[in-house]
Amino acid sequence: MTFLNELTKGFIKENPIFVIVLGMCPTLAVSTSVNNAIGMGFAATFVLICSNIIISMIKDITPDKIRIPIYIVVIAAFVSIVDMVMAAYTPALHKSLGIFIPLIVVNCIILGRAEAFANRNTVLSSLADGIGMGLGFTFSLIIVATIREILGSGTWLGFKVMPVTYDPMLVAILAPGAFITLGFLMGMMQMMKNKRSR
């Protein structure tokens, strides 16, 4: 029951991007295509799951005073592993995500979950939280990327979905399009929330 709860809350109720508004930089920067969004989402999910597990395992032996530096070391180690593995096995994706792979370290979602959840929960529920939050993050990234890729390139995951006559709206995959897309998506989330509460 609780395990399932932890697993699903990341999608809607505590969606890291739309509701808690964390980890904006990668959300906006790599959502130019669905392919990048999936890559980034899984990289962050992997780091999130691993760091959640390790941190909940060592929570009893970490002195409170230096817990933040220790979290950072753990997270940075996993980020570096992801960085190297991606460079070796998915070089194209590694290149298009570029600097945002090392920057997963400072993705507030990961440190935020370590501090707010893994720090005081069991390994199992931390694992569920990691999976849920990670997939919620990936899911939100894919939504933003879907809108931007279809409007901006006329494709989805590389396949042409718009009619040949469609002239791609370039601005959608450039920086301004990222902000505006996310702005409207958040407006929609608020609208849904307001309707439900009324």
Binding site: P63, P69, I70, V73, S80, I81, M84, A87
Partner: peptide, 24 residues
């Protein structure tokens, strides 16, 4: 304690690096 964590992390990274570098 912090030093031990850093050392373990560096060790793991060195290992992963030695495995991935030739592949890259």
């Amino acid at each position: 304690i912090l030093l031990i964590f850093c050392a373990v992390a560096s060790g793991v990274l060195a290992f992963v690096n030695s495995k991935t570098q030739p592949v890259i």
